[in-house]
Design a protein around this nucleic acid. Structure first.
Lengths: 110, 110
DNA sequence: TAATTATATTGCAATATTACGATATTGTTT
DNA sequence: AAACAATATCGTAATATTGCAATATAATTA
């Protein structure tokens, strides 16, 4: 054992988990915040913004990209990363869904 | 190496990462969805809803509780779990923050 | 084309997560 | 009190993640 039993859950549950997991590291939260702070998408200098080595940052970027939270396009010598909205919408929808349900049920509970 | 370098990030970034990480497993997404689906908070039977053993479910519940996403109160023989709104608000706020920023910048980017 | 710059990949050690059987704990019933 | 029910904890094996030095790749400039 040790591996997540993804085949026992729905595709939607697995998708949401992948998105949430990708954000489950402070460096990756920091990357998202940085991409948001600078004007539009930015090429390079993410490494300089983080207290981690270049290979480590590259790995975190790859994970965010695999999860569908950012996208990167080659821009000459460097790569232009920016937030990928569809991925973001998906996970945002989950929280909105929860909030709507909770509002309906307010005060029925502990 | 191998441990996350939490001390190099802000408290806010670490908090958000902890919340997201807690949701980064399909079983824990399923637990949240189940708590939402049933009327208010429910005692017991979460184990029967999931394709995992009782100790494993108990462990996932503990992680959600530690992250502040659910709370549990002893209700006689069993335990009554329900969603903890403050934890949820925190992470929901992060996505709203991102969305607002993105709307301002629409079309400036790739 | 050689040096430079930007980013990715490989390989590996340290640590964390996932899952569950066995067992403990705690409240309830008989 | 003994048996039962619900949940938690312990111990441990399998697997995944984190981080970085070293190295590779690819575009740019001198």
């Amino acid at each position: 054992m040790g591996a997540t039993k993804t085949d026992h859950f729905t595709a939607n549950q697995n998708e949401l988990a992948v998105l949430a997991k990708a954000l489950g590291h402070p460096a990756r939260i920091a990357i998202m915040e940085y991409l948001l702070k600078v004007d539009a998408c930015i090429c390079g200098d993410i490494v300089n913004e983080l207290p981690l080595s270049q290979p480590t940052v590259s790995q975190h970027l790859k994970e965010l990209k695999n999860a569908g939270l950012i996208k990167g396009s080659i821009e000459g010598n460097s790569i232009c990363y920016c937030i990928n909205e569809p991925g973001l919408e998906k996970i945002k929808g989950f929280f909105e869904h929860i909030t709507v349900h909770l509002e309906k049920k307010r005060n029925e509970c502990c």
